[in-house]
Design a protein around this nucleic acid. Structure first.
Lengths: 238, 238
DNA sequence: TGTTTATTGTCTCAATTTATTACAATAATA
DNA sequence: TATTATTGTAATAAATTGAGACAATAAACA
């Protein structure tokens, strides 16, 4: 197999053992809430983007680093939501399969085949302003609607479900919705984000009154989209 | 020093390296929200109860095990709330101090002196029905009001603050309040728990109507306390 | 150039929820 | 039997939210 690719693999000596992180990276295309999913080379295996924590690196920094590598973006809204630590979540045979598919034959005691706990984060980014990049072991990274995910490896489906639940809960409490939009956005776009996250239609007038009442938005010029109707104002987060 | 106590120390081979857990164990005496704090032997150092995860043990099980050891209680309400992973949170000199104070001289590369990330949980228990027990390295474990904590080692004060914030947020969302009370309790006791957690007085009639309206309580016999007034009903969680 | 269409911003009134007050019931005591 | 402290619930006021109405307006069209 492809022995000269070994240098791509993370080295045991550089990382905290038995500990990983995974990121649920949310975007919204105006209709649906979506997340970024990796597809591993030659395997038909799908997974969340993730990585490992360097021995002298903050946990948060490690996740931000991985996110930068996948999205090219900096200063992303990022929030830790749960650490998954069941013994049964680790599936060495899955890891072995995807290493093999990439040309790596590893010994029985290879560090990546051990048990891993993972700290899960969710990130909110602007769907339209990102050019996602696959990692060393995967050949594609794509947006998937949270309603139509491919089967994910290990416990990644549970991680996604937990992320969606957490995001729902934080939407009104922490007002994180605008992180899924560009700096300036219309009230309708914001409402569409809320509807995609909550999974339900909202009443336009009530929504507008509530959001404006929070006094967190600054109003800017109008947006002339070319449509045959009144132009909406643009808003930004204060 | 006391070499024959070495057997009490956790052995590196049994545990996931670089990973710990800490528990913020809440109780309520009717007036104040309190937590259990350990005082280490001969050091004047105070800390949260915590421990390590065995190589083949679920994370949640490890925390439940530690909680059982400190409180003697089983089936405790337990919730993970954050994983703390900054490099600077680890303070090997603190660990060395408290090992020394207990008679343990350890080498420079001793595993407990390395960097540790910690998964933090909070637990809710009945203040009156627990006989807390100190761990191997500590000589006391006591209730402290969250308003009057002693100075805690490392980042344990931050962990406590985060726990209190999380508990506040979950009080109404997850209705966890009754876990701080015995099986049967009066409406006033429940209100006192809410007031202690939220840090504010609540209106009696509004509180009673809201809680009863949730339809989560079963009403039982009255409690005759001996006071010169109408006796309140006892309630339990449905 | 007026007319039409789709959408927006805001207002009004109804429905619901929450806050506040009031008050009768009652357990022990004097 | 009156007094005291507290409880359960009802009644009313205030605030919030739901639902509809409507004028304003940007572009297309006749």
């Amino acid at each position: 197999m492809n022995k000269n690719r070994d240098l791509d693999l993370p080295l045991k000596k550089d990382y905290i053992p038995n500990l990983a992180y995974d990121s649920v990276i949310f975007g919204c295309n105006g209709e649906q809430l979506k997340i970024l999913i990796l597809e591993y080379h030659n395997t038909n295996l799908f997974a969340l983007p993730g990585g490992f924590v360097k021995k002298n690196e903050n946990l948060d920094s490690a996740v931000a680093r991985g996110l930068r590598e996948r999205t090219g973006l900096d200063h992303i809204y990022l929030e830790q939501f749960h650490t998954f630590g069941d013994t049964l979540r680790s599936r060495p045979e899955v890891m072995r399969t995807l290493l093999k598919a990439n040309g790596y034959e590893v010994p029985e005691d290879y560090w990546l085949l051990q048990r891993f706990l993972t700290v899960a984060y969710y990130a909110l980014i602007n769907y339209d302003e990102v050019q996602p990049m696959p990692d060393a072991l995967s050949d594609s990274i794509n947006w998937y609607s949270i309603e139509e995910l491919p089967p994910l490896i290990m416990d990644h489906s549970v991680i996604v479900k937990t992320a969606v639940q957490t995001l729902k809960g934080n939407l009104e409490k922490k007002l994180v919705g605008m992180n899924l939009l560009p700096t300036k956005f219309t009230m309708r776009e914001l409402q569409q984000v809320y509807e995609a996250v909550l999974g339900e239609k909202l009443r336009r007038t009530t929504f507008q009154r509530k959001i404006l009442g929070l006094d967190i938005l600054a109003r800017h010029e109008k947006l002339f989209s070319g449509g045959a109707h009144k132009a909406p104002y643009l808003y930004s987060f204060k």
